[in-house]
């Protein structure tokens, strides 16, 4: 089997972990593939840089906000100096760039398997209602507002507490109208309009990770129920589940939009009803769980992209436990020194 060098970003396995390390592990788990991992980091302290048993070489990347030219030059450099056959971008901020320029990146001989820009825009929270209706899932009562008056009206209509969210980023829980106004101002100042006011639905938090092949078919999906979350709201312990309402919505999401690439639907289940809270257009940080129960989603994606055979078994065991733990690596200052002065290690 020829070697495939895969670039993986989001190797910031910290208290708010990026998905990269899990994706890298999953790829390496597929023993029929001959994969080498390149870490694409944005900061010299991303732990992945120092995990040499997973990541063969790491490069500091220019921020996507710096535009296409610098970014593409860096990819060309990595391709020329180490080799790079495929990239799995795992951060929200990178996706628009990969989505828009996927053809140009592929022309460099670097494959990607990402949603189109149009698909990417579906994740905006002010479009959640539209998506939810199409894929047959409920959403919490939601109002899109752009003024204080509308905000107060929405809060009265929905009833406290409410979630106050930006269209793309930030979400706060407000217990009073005053708090809602404060969060509204805060989000508007940073991210602009519109603001989404949402009913707080209590219940069990459950998510589904999946990969669409871009032609309406699923390359696998797995449901998880969060058992324990950290103070940052990140999953620490979970259990695999099969909630048919949630999985049907995920299938329908892939099918309706011909979704290409990884995604996560964040849901809440309440009295048998499942509500869609958020769509993430990439692998979630816990996606290694899928590989761990025999459903290797990153590998399926890579195989699909390279035209390699994909396991037809899309089934997984429910009741498997997902446990995170912390771990330490002791190393010299040298890798840090190299990454800080040369931008690679």
């Amino acid at each position: 089997m020829r070697e495939i060098i895969v670039g993986v970003s989001g190797i910031n396995a910290v208290d708010n972990p990026g998905p990269g390390i899990g994706v890298a592990r999953a790829l390496l788990d597929d023993k029929d593939l001959n994969v080498k991992i390149v870490g694409l980091a944005y900061d010299g302290m991303e732990p992945g840089i120092y995990l040499d048993w997973l990541i063969d070489r790491s490069y500091i990347m220019p921020y996507p906000s710096g535009g296409y030219d610098a970014f593409i030059k860096r990819l060309e450099y990595i391709k020329a100096s180490f080799g790079l056959d495929f990239i799995i971008p795992n951060l929200d901020s990178e996706l628009p760039l990969y989505a828009k320029y996927s053809e140009k990146i592929e022309k460099l001989g670097i494959g990607v398997f990402v949603p189109t820009l149009k698909q990417f825009h579906l994740r905006a929270k002010n479009r959640l209602a539209e998506v939810a209706e199409k894929i047959g899932i409920k959403i919490p009562q939601t109002e899109v507002v752009t003024s204080h008056d509308e905000l107060v009206e929405a809060v009265e209509k929905i009833g406290l507490p409410v979630m106050v969210k930006g269209a793309l980023y930030k979400a706060y829980r407000a217990h009073t109208t005053q708090q809602a106004i404060e969060y509204y101002n805060k989000i508007v100042a940073e991210w602009g309009y519109p603001i989404v006011v949402q009913q707080v639905v209590s219940g069990e938090e459950m998510n589904v990770v999946g990969v669409g092949d871009g032609e309406g078919n699923s390359l696998g999906m797995l449901g998880i129920r969060k058992l324990w979350i950290t103070s940052l709201g990140k999953i620490w312990t979970g259990v695999s589940i099969r909630n048919q309402k949630m999985l049907n919505a995920a299938s329908s999401f892939i099918h309706t939009y011909n979704w290409k690439g990884a995604f996560e639907l964040e849901c809440i289940s309440n009295n048998g009803d499942v509500y869609l809270i958020e769509i993430n257009p990439r692998f979630p940080a816990w996606s290694y769980f899928a590989a761990g129960v025999g459903l290797n989603l990153p590998s399926n994606m890579l195989r699909k992209a390279f035209g390699l055979p994909i396991s037809q078994n899309m089934d997984y065991k429910v009741g498997k436990l997902y446990v995170r733990y912390t771990y330490e690596v002791i190393t010299d200052l040298q890798p840090f020194q190299e990454i800080m002065t040369k931008g690679e290690w």
Binding site: L333, F336, Q337, M340, T341, K342
Partner: peptide, 17 residues
């Protein structure tokens, strides 16, 4: 101070380039 421009302060643990 290393030749490639990396500076480490052993008393505080700070580093500079």
């Amino acid at each position: 101070i290393s030749e490639n421009g990396f500076i480490f302060d052993p008393t505080t643990g700070e580093s500079f380039t």
